Simulated assay, not measured.
Amino acid sequence: MWYITRFKIIFEKKVIVDLHSHTTASDGVLTPSALVKRAVENQINVLAITDHDTVKGLAEAKKTIEHENLPIKLICGVEISTNWKNNEIHIVGLNINIDHAQLLDLLLSQEQARIQRAQTISAKLAKLNIDNAYEQAKQFAKGDIVSRAHFARFLVVGGFVKDVKRAFKKYLGKSGYAYVPPNWCSIADAINAIHSAGGQAVLAHPTRYDLTATKLKLLISEFKSEGGDAIEVSQSRQMQDDLQRLAKLANEFGLLASQGSDFHDLVNYLDLGKTKPLPDSVIPIWHNWMLN
Rank of each mutant, 00 (worst) to 15 (best):
K14C: 05
L19Q: 11
T24G: 06
S33M: 02
L35A: 01
K37R: 15
A39Q: 09
E41P: 02
Q43F: 09
V46S: 06
L47I: 01
A48I: 00
I49M: 09
V55C: 14
K56G: 13
K56C: 10
T64P: 10
I75D: 12
I89W: 00
I91A: 08
G93W: 07
I98N: 05
H100E: 15
A101V: 08
Q102K: 14
L103P: 02
L104N: 15
A113V: 00
Q116G: 14
S122H: 04
A123M: 12
N129Y: 07
Q139N: 13
V146M: 02
H150F: 08
F151S: 08
R153H: 08
G159T: 06
G159N: 06
L172V: 11
A178I: 02
P182R: 13
N183L: 02
S186F: 03
D189C: 02
I191M: 11
I194F: 09
I194P: 04
H195T: 03
G199H: 06
A201Y: 04
E226A: 15
G228R: 01
I231W: 02
S236G: 12
R237C: 08
Q244V: 01
L249H: 10
F253C: 08
F253R: 10
L256I: 01
A257V: 07
S258N: 05
D265C: 10
D265W: 06
D271Y: 00
D280L: 13
P284D: 08
I285L: 14
H287D: 13
